[in-house]
């Protein structure tokens, strides 16, 4: 059996490499942020008790920030990728 893609994947996308590189950079940035959370918990868990915002401790603020940053990075990544796809694939078409 052939392992061909399901749909519309024969459409040429000139932005593949750009998107892959951007994705890896954003992944690395988030990875560092996530690693910071793990390291604080492992090396100095009591530091997580520090009140940082409106009397709420670092553990909760850091945890919420990890979630919110993931959403924000996703939206930014999509906006940049969509723009690049439109630019690079339009050039090809022209």
């Amino acid at each position: 059996m052939l392992h061909e893609p399901a749909n519309n994947n024969d459409v040429v996308d000139n932005a593949i490499n750009y998107k892959a590189t951007l994705g890896l950079k954003l992944f690395a940035a988030y990875g560092v942020f996530y690693l910071g959370f793990i390291l604080i918990n492992v090396l100095k868990p009591s530091f997580m008790k520090t009140e940082v915002l409106f009397g709420v401790n670092l553990a909760i603020i850091y945890g919420f920030t990890l979630i919110i940053v993931a959403i924000a990075m996703g939206l930014i990544y999509n906006a940049i990728c969509t723009k690049k796809e439109n630019e690079m694939n339009k050039q090809e078409a022209a």
Partner: peptide
């Protein structure tokens, strides 16, 4: 327990930035 929430969500970063589009391009079912 909230650590699971953080970890489960963070996992989507790998899915979005690294895996989503290539998996779509390469696979079928």
């Amino acid at each position: 327990g909230f650590l699971y929430s953080i970890g489960y969500l963070a996992g989507w970063i790998v899915a979005l930035f690294v895996v989503a589009e290539p998996m779509k391009r390469l696979g079928k079912y």
